[in-house]
Design a protein around this nucleic acid. Sequence first.
DNA 1: GCCCGTTGTCGAAGCGCTTCGACGCTCATC
DNA 2: GATGAGCGTCGAAGCGCTTCGACAACGGGC
Lengths: 339, 339
Amino acid sequence: MSGRTVTITEVARHAGVAVSTVSYVLSGKRAISADTRRRVLDSVRVLGYHPNAGARALASRRANVIALVLPLRAGMHVPVLMQFATSVVTAARQYDHDVLLLTADEGSDGIRRAAASALVDGLVLMDVELHDPRVPLLRRLAEPSVLIGFPADTTGLTCVDLDFARAGALCVEHLAERGHREVALLGAPAVVYERGTGFARRTREGFTEAVARHGLTGVALPCEETFEQVAATVEGLLAERPGLTGLVVHNEAAVNHVLGALRQHGRRVPHDVAVVAICPDDIAERSSPALTSVLIPAEEVARQAVRLLMDKLEGHTAPEGTLLEPRMTVRDSTSVVRS
Amino acid sequence: MSGRTVTITEVARHAGVAVSTVSYVLSGKRAISADTRRRVLDSVRVLGYHPNAGARALASRRANVIALVLPLRAGMHVPVLMQFATSVVTAARQYDHDVLLLTADEGSDGIRRAAASALVDGLVLMDVELHDPRVPLLRRLAEPSVLIGFPADTTGLTCVDLDFARAGALCVEHLAERGHREVALLGAPAVVYERGTGFARRTREGFTEAVARHGLTGVALPCEETFEQVAATVEGLLAERPGLTGLVVHNEAAVNHVLGALRQHGRRVPHDVAVVAICPDDIAERSSPALTSVLIPAEEVARQAVRLLMDKLEGHTAPEGTLLEPRMTVRDSTSVVRS
DNA sequence: GCCCGTTGTCGAAGCGCTTCGACGCTCATC
DNA sequence: GATGAGCGTCGAAGCGCTTCGACAACGGGC
C-alpha cells in the first residue's frame, strides 16, 4: 500500500517496544506477554509489515529457501515431474520455506553456487541416476540434501522413491491372480536403461523376479515412444509370443500408443490382452479402456522428501533410504479373469 | 572445500586490498587496475569465495532472483508448462538471476509476500486468464512483472504470448491451400473456455475468422480429454458433417485420442481427413502419422518474458503486448492435396 | 524479610555486503 | 610550476534483521 517498505524498526516504534521484542514476537523464540504480543501483531497488520528476506537470512544464517534441482533429460516423464515440482513447493510452504528452481544442466556448479552463496539451506534433487556425478558433491556439502531416486551407493545420503521393484512385482502378481501365464513388460526407451536410471531398472527387476516366483513366462522389452515404433514392438511381441495375454506398460508417453496398436491388431483389452500400467492416474483414467495402474505418487514422494529435508535442517538424522509402497488401482483393462 | 564459508573480508586480506576494492572488482562498478583485479580474482579462486546472497541482497537492495508463478489448474497443458519453467530458469541464469518457484494456489498473497519481503526483484506469471484476479495487484506492485498470456485489459502490464489467433488462422489457411472446404477445430475442454482462458479463445477466433475469410465451412468445438469423450466428439462430427476433410486440434492431451478415434472409424489420415495440430513438436513427431503442427514456442516465449523483465528491472519501459509469430511445420498428416 | 529463579523487555553487537565520499596519485594543460 | 581532471583505492556508514547478555519486576519458599 504505502510506497515505501516497512521495516521492523517502524513496527517497533509504532507498537512502542524495542526492535528485538518485535523480532521475538514474530519468531516465538522468547516468552512475550500476551498484551505486548497483541500490540506488536496489530502494528504489523496496520503497517503491512513483511520481514526483509535478505536481512533475515544474513542475520539468522537461514535463507528459508530450499533448492529443487530439476532433471532435464531425454526420456523423462514430464507430467510427473511437474507434479513433483508443485508438490515440493506446496510442501515447502508448509514449513515456511520457499523453493528455488535449478536445472540439472547447470550440473554440480549450480548446486555448489546455490549452496555456497547461502541462497538455499538445503536441496532436493530429482531423477537421480545410478551413477550420478553430483552425488560426491552432495556428500561433501555442508547443506543437507534429499534425493528423489536411488543412486547405486546411498551411503551418507537420504533417498526417497516409490518402490519400483515392488510396483513391477505387483503388476505381475495382479496378472497372475487373473490367470495370465505369459506376460511382457514394455518399459522405458532403451536409452534410459543404458543411462542407468534406477527406476526403470528396478521395475524390470521386480517384474522379472515376480515372473519367476509365480512360474510365469515373461519378457521385458524397452519401448520407444513414437507410435510407429510402439506398434512395431507390439506387433513383434504378439507374433513371437502367441500365448501372451498380459502386458505391463511402464512408459507414460507410450501407453496410449500401446492401446492404439492393440486396437489396430484386433486385440481387445481386456478380453484378449490385459494391460497394467505404471503411470499417473489421469493418464490411466483417460485411456480406453481405463487402465488398471500403479500410480506414481508424486505428491507423496515430494512431501516425504521435503519432510526429510526439514528434519535434516533441524539437525536430526534421516534414514538413507525411504521406499514408498506402491498401490494399485484396478480398472477395466484387467477386468476379465481367465480360467 | 574448507568447512568455513569464505567472506569478502578474507578475500580482501588475502589479496592485500580493501573490502570495497574486492567488491568493485566483482561488480565492475568502478575502474580497477589490471594488476589489482588479477590479484583479487586469484584470491577469489584460491579461497573459493562465493558472495553471500543475503548480504548482497540486503546491501544492494537487489536479490537477483525473479519469481516464476506456475499455474495449477485443470485443463492445463503440462509438458508445455515444464518447458516454460526450465526455459525461464535458463534465460534468467543468463542474466545472472535465479528463479523462485511459486504456485498459483497461493494466489495474490504469495505474490505480495515474495515481493514485499524482497525475496524477488520481479515476477513472471504463467497462464494468465482474461480476468485474472492477480492483475490489479501486479499493477500496484513496485516490482516489475511480465505475464505470459494476455488478460482482457493489458493497460500498464507487459504481456507475452504466442499469437494464437494467427496460429488458428494459419492452420485454416494451410488446409484451405490443400483444397479442404469443410473444416473443424477441436479445442480445449469446455471448462477452459468458460474460465476465460485467453489462448483457447483466441485460437478459436483466429480459426473462425480465417474460415470466413477463405469462404470455408467450419465449426469449432471444445474437446474433452478421455478417449471415450474424444471418440464421441469425433464420431458426432463425422456423422453431422460428412463433407468434413480438415481437422485442427488444439489440445495436447487429446490429439492422440483424436487420431485413434479416426483410425477406429476407418478414416485414414491424411487421405480421408487432414489433421493440423497446435502442440509441442515432440507430440507431433511421435504421432502416427506425424502431424503437421504449429508448435508452442515455449522456449522463445520464456526467453522473451525474461528479457522484458530484465529490461524493466533496469528501468526501461517494455511494450504492453508482445505476440510471437507462429510457425508451422508440415508433416505427413496434411500431405495430400485435394483437387 | 531475604534470596533466588522466572518472566518479559531492552540495547547493542554483529551478519557480509554495497556504496558514498575522500584522497593521493599521475598527466596533460596553460 | 601551478592547476585540475581523471584514475584507483580506501574507510566507514549503513542495509534490516537476529540474538546474546543484562536487568528490572515479581512471586514463592524458607
